[in-house]
Each structure stands twice: as C-alpha cells, then as structure tokens.
C-alpha cells in the first residue's frame, strides 16, 4: 500500500515544553486516519506540522512526497483543510463559493467550470447549487465546505472536528461522504471528540501528553485493551494525562 504521510521521530518543542514527543506513524493512500486526544494533548500542533504550517523541532515528515522542512509550500498546495469554523462566504451561492475557492487555487476558465460542476455532482448538491450558503442547514454547509476543501483535487484532506453540532442524520451522511471519497483514493486525516465517530476511521492514533498512547484499527485497539467501546478506551488512556492537571 502506498504511503502518503510518513512521520518519524517527530518532535516539537515550544521553549522547555515538549508539545509533540517522538511520534512515528504512517498513513496509506485512501486511509481514514483519526487523530484523537484530549485538549492539550498535541493534536493541533501535530496537524499544523503535517499541513506545512509549523516547522518541526526534529524528526522527519513527508506528506504527499514532500518534505515538511524544505517543501512546506508544496505540502500546502497538496492538501485540503476543513475545520469546524469553516469559512464559506454566506452571501454567495454554493456554486459561487466553489468557483471562488477554485480561483484561489489557480483554476480558471473551462477547467474551473468543469471542476465546479464535478464537485456539485459528486457531493449531490445539484438541488442546492444556486442557494445562498447562509440559508442552508448546517449539515449542508459542512458538505459544501468539504467540497470546497477538495476543489484543487488534493490527495490528502484534513478535517478538524468537522461534524460539531449537526443532527444525528447529517453527521452520519457526512461520514458516508468521507468513506466515499476515501474509496476514490483520497486520504483523510480527521480529529473528533465524538468517540462513536472514532469507530468510523480505518486507523486511530490516540495522543496523550504529546506521545502516542495507542495506534491501530479501532476493533484491534478495543480487544487489545479489553474494553467495550472507544469511549472507555479513550477515557482510560487520557485520564492519566499530566495536561489534566494544568
């Protein structure tokens, strides 16, 4: 299986504080990789380094074949990013938003038009394509936001707590879309506080105090730690954190 993210002995220090402590893992093409951790565990720092937004202190990171130390710009051009505070233009329609962000990524003319209608089809947004984003339900806005993050056909997308606050059906529909794009070969790295969503990932990495506490398939991790649910596993690992005491 082709690896699209490779991380070796990754360390990030802020002054005396070690935010990320010696991470080693890899992510295969098309994998849905969940990064879990309590607030302050080092998730955001890790993601920022993987996105080429923050220089590591030491170690090795390759993302989509590019080196995070020497080629952060190429990394940024090869990834899509969507967060819970997604920034769509609420007074533009779905179609206009995709076109706008496509333009930012350097698409234009026929190519831009083609890509926009491709995404509208793929994310089943035809019904809504001319509706202003502000009048869409939250679940649909999240879907538009996901489409926008993929406008430049990135091989990897990062989703930072993408489903916060939506109803139970919208949340599941969103995950079905994620599985759909993963089947097509896009690699997905996702953070979430919902432990039932952690089970929707192919592979999970649980961070505590900047270190890897668990890494593997959800079912394997549960049987290895002899727990019934991800929630139980997460609580048992994260509860002993130093960060809890800060």
């Amino acid at each position: 299986m082709k690896r699209v993210i490779e991380v070796e002995n990754l360390v990030k220090q802020f002054g005396n504080f070690t935010a990320v402590n010696n991470l080693t893992f890899s992510v295969a093409k098309g994998e849905i990789f969940g990064l879990l951790g309590a607030n302050g565990a080092g998730k955001t720092t890790t993601i920022r380094m993987l996105c080429g937004l923050l220089l590591p202190t030491s170690g090795k990171i390759t993302v989509a074949g590019y080196d995070a130390f020497t080629q952060p710009e190429q990394i940024r051009a090869s990834i899509g990013y969507m967060s819970q505070k997604f920034s769509l233009y609420s007074d533009l329609t779905v179609w206009e938003n995709i076109r706008f962000f496509g333009g930012i990524y350097g698409l234009w003319g026929r190519e831009l038009k083609l890509r926009t209608s491709e995404l509208v089809d793929e994310f089943k947004m035809n019904e809504f394509r001319d509706v202003m984003v502000e009048s869409l339900p939250l679940g649909w806005r999240q879907r538009v936001s996901l489409a926008v993050s993929m406008v430049h056909k990135p091989p990897i997308i990062f989703l930072d707590e993408p489903t916060s606050g939506v109803d139970p059906i919208a949340r599941r529909m969103f995950w079905e879309t994620i599985h759909h794009i993963s089947l097509q070969g896009t690699t997905v790295m996702v953070t979430t506080h919902y432990m039932d969503e952690a089970e929707y990932c192919h592979t999970l990495l649980i961070m505590v105090d900047g270190m890897i506490q668990a890494l593997g398939k959800p079912d394997e991790l549960k049987s290895k730690h002899a727990v019934e649910s991800m929630n139980e596993l997460f609580l048992s690992l994260a509860r002993n954190s130093n960060a809890n005491m800060m």
């Binding site: 951790g37 309590a38 607030n39 819970q84 707590e161 916060s164 606050g165 506080h193 432990m195 929630n231 997460f234 609580l235 994260a238 509860r239 954190s241 809890n244």
Partner: peptide
C-alpha cells in the same frame, strides 16, 4: 460540553 474533550465532558 461543546468543543470539550471526552475526559472534561465526563
């Protein structure tokens, strides 16, 4: 509990 991790929620 919005945006709060599973430990703090509990």
């Amino acid at each position: 509990t919005t945006g709060v991790d599973a430990v703090s929620r509990m």
